[in-house]
Design a protein around this nucleic acid. Structure first.
Lengths: 218, 218
DNA sequence: GATAGACTAAATGTTGACATTAAAACAATC
DNA sequence: GATTGTTTTAATGTCAACATTTAGTCTATC
């Protein structure tokens, strides 16, 4: 009856724990005790351990044999490295998106831009809501039609970025700049100009990284 | 007594299964039965499942809930996507390596080149031994001092590339071209020329991808 | 002969208990 | 009082059994 593969307990745990880490419910650097978590969530340790292994693969937790796991600590150094990786991957996927996206997918990009624009007008000068920003970038990422880069970005980079933004006020996506840059990226993709899309996306991310470099304390 | 964290059964299984997949002992697309593997390796299913979750994070196997896991199938399309991801990440890390590598690390790069050169002379025109090629690239990758990119390359990209090369004769690293290009990359890093290192590395990988594009059947 | 349904078997998902190791608490000595 | 050694406690690592779902087989009916 259910077309998509049914959720398993261990995959539900993965999502639950991922969100708890992103929102800071589990503090950075804190130890995650299996026994305590298992009692707390009312599950056995088997599926819990599997979920933990998956989160390990997402860079959200670090494992030391015989000692347990800890939530990753987002130091300034690590965040800047994350943005370097993001710059390399997402500029490439933007170039691919310019070549690969269907006209329907580009339509959707415009729709997402409209939503952001409307939100801007209504809440003038307010920070862009994170959800709109993510939706735009994910649409570009999926449009590149490269499963390897897509996976690296959505599973290993974006969760960390969401975690960082969620837990640091100064990191919220800022002002109208992002919207302008999103329009430029959309234009480049629409023109099927891979080079322009790549350069524009690279600049977009580079600026975000430089803002962090300036504002984040060590 | 043992300084480094002691190996656990599940981490040993991860390595064992990884190698078995890379070498083609487990065929591409074949199903990995937990019960059979557990008997075969004389371990219980718990640690085995954890190892499988880790290999999932390495892109070596794919999991379908309630159905089990299969070894990844390296189609031409996937291989080309892997090389696109590699190009984006490794060109960036080459730029970083030009800025970050210590002189000792650059020394080691020269040493690795010498080994390759000597091997070339003795086995003239023969294919470069894969090990030498990996050693060179890994040295550059670690030299970039970016843990995020390093992890993505060594854990998610290179295992797939090793698997691809190991199982396809035409994919073996070829001739003296690679050595020449390795020398160019080393030169750029030595000169602390990040842009040149990035461009040279990008070309190096791009050429490899184009060779695959031409030679690999669909 | 083909198709639909019930039944069987084997696999994955999950649980609880056991074993071993690391951390914590305590005691004893310098 | 601090430090070293011992004991205790609790956590991680591992195992074996149970539950549930899926795939296959067989049978019955059209």
């Amino acid at each position: 009856m259910n077309a998509r593969p049914s959720e398993t307990l261990s995959s539900e745990l993965t999502s639950t724990l991922r969100d708890a880490i992103i929102t800071g419910e589990f503090k950075q650097g804190s130890k995650l005790s299996e026994t305590r978590l298992a009692k707390q969530l009312n599950v056995s340790r088997g599926p819990l351990r599997e979920a933990i292994r998956r989160l390990e693969g997402m860079n959200l937790i670090q494992h030391v044999p015989q000692q347990g796991v800890r939530v990753v600590t987002l130091t300034k150094e690590l965040i800047l490295q994350i943005y370097e990786a993001r710059e390399a991957l997402e500029s490439k996927i933007a170039a691919l998106a310019a070549e690969q996206m269907s006209s329907q997918e580009i339509e959707e990009l415009h729709r997402l831009l409209d939503v952001q624009t409307r939100h801007m007008r209504e809440h003038e000068a307010a920070a862009m809501p994170a959800e709109g920003d993510y939706a735009f970038h994910e649409q570009v990422i999926r449009g590149g039609k490269n499963k390897v880069i897509e996976r690296a970005l959505l599973f290993e980079i974006y969760n960390l970025i969401k975690m960082f933004r969620y837990q640091n006020e100064f990191a919220h996506t800022s002002t109208s700049n992002a919207l302008i840059e999103h329009r430029q990226i959309t234009y480049a993709i629409e023109q099927r100009d891979a080079v322009l899309a790549e350069v524009t996306m690279r600049q977009h991310i580079k600026r975000a990284r430089e803002r962090i470099e300036r504002r984040m304390p060590d």
